[in-house]
Design a protein around this nucleic acid. Structure first.
Length: 417
RNA sequence: GUGGGUGUAGCUCAGUUGGUUAGAGCGCCGGGUUGUGGACCCGGAGGUCGCGGGUUCAAUUCCCGUCACUCACCCCA
């Protein structure tokens, strides 16, 4: 038997209704905010991700699915969406397209991690990118869409945390101060963090190891190193969130794991999720375009993990199936008539189905029951010769005799009621 | 990559202090006669007890290894 790949899941028919609500909500809300959908490739040159995400990050160091193409060039299955969108943006000069400054995507991402609850090797993200403006209103709009997506789906136990990483010059000064603070305390830090002092000192603040927490309690705060411009920007974002009544917590330790973030960053976590509780996150990445060889262009976006959204999705959000009719044609005349009736129904948009393995009325009804058909159209030889059919409501057991000539219209009426 | 838990029927799980034909519930198939589903009753199919090795007269049960699943660390959405 050939098994599927570890951490790569099938989505069985029973799960599709959940996915449909979530995807539909994503499309409708994103478009309602003026975002246009973009579909980018599932694999890209490896270099794209190394340069955008950062060579010292876990994603690049140990989680990418990287392989050689036949010509020897290195390709990578996308571990996230922003890099590809920005690459596409630069490559096609989308900055000149007025309709392309707000883009969204939905699709699979790939990271070689050890699977656990809410974490898979192939997982799906819904993300948006707003390109070309430094205006704080852009930040607010993006966070508002993120928050509205979750509240439309009625996910319980959400917390929004926000922080500002400042401009890269702010961060440079801060980093030096932080390293000076950390170096004397190096003995108290975990092995991971000792390494981080050189590679990415900001992440030390994000460490969950208790000793690291206590060691960094009095660490200098990034907020104190922000330039006036950064401070003003961040304050306007916070004021905007207040105006829109979006609840948030300030978290000066919130550091994103991808190197390209700057200024505003945010993360939504969900208390009903267990260990992997980050359900959506994002921030500004004003430097990424330049990093990838484009013109300096500010941008902000987020990504949401759809599997995690599904885990937290309340049962009540799953829509009831549309009413449909099971056609039970039996006997030489009945099965003929049933078959053409089914086609007539489908031609006017009524969902109709039957079971070709059932031939007696009993077995047909049994099959209809198992498919939880709300209505069954009974068509035996007797009915055909009398030019009518029996419409059975499976829930109430009520049956009515309807003329064959107008059956499809009667059906349409009954199903919509 | 590290650690814990689990692996018995299609599914959820009992069980065997090592001993002839391994159980339940649900599901599935058939029957309870002739054209009416779900309930009930009766019957039936279905398992190399994850795989490999070891100990033993004897292993599904004990030991070792391995693989898979799962949760957590880490990291992230």
């Amino acid at each position: 038997m050939i098994r599927g790949i570890k951490g790569v899941k099938d989505i069985p028919p029973s799960q599709i209704p959940k996915w449909s609500v979530v995807e539909k909500t994503a499309h409708q809300l994103a478009q309602g905010y003026g975002f246009k959908e973009i579909r980018i490739p599932i694999f890209e040159p490896t270099e794209l991700y190394i340069r955008s995400i950062g060579g010292a990050t876990d994603i690049v160091e140990k989680e990418m699915y990287t392989f050689l193409d036949r010509d020897g060039s290195s390709l990578t299955l996308r571990p996230e969406g922003t890099a590809g969108v920005v690459r596409s943006f630069i490559e096609h000069n989308l900055i000149n397209e007025p309709t392309c400054k707000k883009l969204y995507y939905i699709g699979p991402m790939f990271r070689h991690e050890r699977p656990q609850a809410g974490r898979f090797r192939q997982f799906h993200q819904f993300g948006v990118e707003m390109v070309g403006t430094t205006n704080p209103y852009a930040d607010i709009e993006v966070i508002s869409l993120l928050w509205r997506f979750f509240s439309s789906l009625e996910l319980p136990g959400l917390t929004l945390e926000v922080n500002s990483l400042g401009e890269s010059s702010d961060r440079q000064v801060y980093k030096e101060n932080l390293v000076t603070f950390l170096n004397p305390k190096i003995e108290q830090l975990c092995g991971n963090c000792r390494r981080r002092i050189d590679t990415n000192p900001l992440r030390v603040l994000d460490c969950k190891v208790p000793q690291c927490r206590t060691a960094t309690e009095d660490a200098p705060k990034l907020t104190d190193f922000l330039s006036q411009t950064s401070k003003d920007h961040f304050n306007q974002v916070l004021t905007g969130l207040d105006t829109l009544s979006i609840p948030y917590n300030l978290n000066s330790r919130l550091v994103r794991g991808l190197d390209y973030y700057s200024m505003t960053t945010f993360e939504v976590s969900c208390s009903s999720l267990g260990a992997q509780n980050a359900i959506g996150a994002g921030g500004r990445y004003d430097g990424l375009f330049e990093t990838l060889g484009g013109k300096s262009t500010p941008a902000i976006g987020f990504a949401i993990g759809l599997e995690r959204v599904l885990l937290a999705l309340p049962e009540s959000m799953i829509p009831h199936p549309k009413p449909w009719v099971f056609v039970a044609g039996f006997g030489p005349l009945g099965s003929q008539a049933g078959f053409s009736m089914m086609d007539t129904l489908r031609s006017i948009g009524i969902t109709a189905n039957t079971d070709h393995n059932a031939s007696s009325l009993k077995s047909l009804l049994k099959s209809a029951d198992r498919l939880s058909a709300p209505f069954v159209l009974i068509l035996g030889d007797d009915e055909v010769s009398q030019h009518h059919a029996i419409l059975r409501n499976m829930q109430t057991k009520a049956q009515e005799i309807i003329p064959l000539s107008t059956a499809s219209f009667t059906l349409k009426d009954r199903l919509s009621g």
